[in-house]
Design a protein around this nucleic acid. Structure first.
Lengths: 166, 166
DNA sequence: TATTGTTATACTCTATAACTATA
DNA sequence: TATAGTTATAGAGTATAACAATA
């Protein structure tokens, strides 16, 4: 990395700050809504939503962890909470006895449905209100390559999800 | 709120998800860098950076809290950590005996300088690499109105910073 | 009476390492 | 030997409420 730019230009800096500020505020608002409307943290909501979208309402623990970026123990903790609340069920996978399949329950789907309208409303009114349809499309077009780049090129500091050399 | 859209259209939904994913990954990477390069959390970095930018390297506690969105007790906690580390100093404000002025120390500035290059490098390589100069300008143009909108129109759920009716 | 800040406290979340069990 | 998941444990961060002091 010989010629890495030593600094961000003013536009980049401002963009970075705005990005952080905007998503912090959005995240904060969404978390409050989820907690209030359905006693869910954002992570728990993400897990439920992901399961709700899955074909059989199921995922392996590892697949869930891959999507949510957390440590496996963190996922175990959250899955435990969701299970205790009756929103998911865990069972040993039939094909691989090491794996655990997490499945959303009817109560889990109900909770999701209970929370979703308010969630959508917060995102809609907070993030999208000042953006036209064209704006949103432009934004999507800018975020997609960044997303792909981040997925494919984790920085040296980021812990690889699988490989572990210790 | 009679005619709030009942749902997000697919483009909005995808944009929202990408935004969350991108900033989560970015935030995660930056936090690791800050922790590793200077034993700072992101919040602590934000506080130091804000003080470093201030005219006299000082801010009142309340002004800091306003910028960082946290509860006052949370700020007291963080300020305590920074002070214990010798990176800031707290003193009673001369003009208002209730207020506390937080000032960054030389060690604080040094820590900031120690951490900044790596910080910039992470942001640069992770967020800006796949974006052209024009892209960044476009992104800035989209984020600015959203930022202003969020600042001015906190959702019903967001706790107002000052007013408290309890 | 309102504002500024601290303290006490409790809780949530995250991460590391050690451990079990299956492939 | 590598992978899947759990457990124990420890630490950081956050929020609420009660508090003290100044305006």
């Amino acid at each position: 990395m010989p010629d890495t730019p030593p600094s961000l230009d003013p536009v980049q800096l401002g963009t970075y700050f705005d990005l952080i500020e905007v998503t912090s505020l959005l995240r904060h608002a969404v978390e409050q809504q989820l907690r209030q409307a359905g006693d869910l943290s954002y992570v728990q909501f993400q897990l439920l939503a992901r399961l709700g979208d899955a074909p059989a309402g199921s995922h392996r623990m590892t697949d869930l962890a891959d999507g949510v970026v957390y440590s496996r123990s963190g996922l175990t903790y959250q899955a435990g909470l969701l299970e205790k609340a009756g929103l998911v069920v865990r069972s040993t996978s039939p094909d691989d006895e090491r794996s655990v399949t997490v499945t959303i329950t009817d109560a889990g789907r109900a909770r999701l449905a209970q929370v979703l309208p308010g969630h959508v409303e917060v995102v809609s009114s907070l993030l999208f209100e000042p953006l036209s349809r064209t704006d949103v499309e432009t934004l999507a077009g800018l975020l997609a390559p960044v997303r792909d780049h981040m997925r494919s090129a984790p920085p040296r500091s980021a812990a690889p999800r699988r490989r572990r050399q210790g």
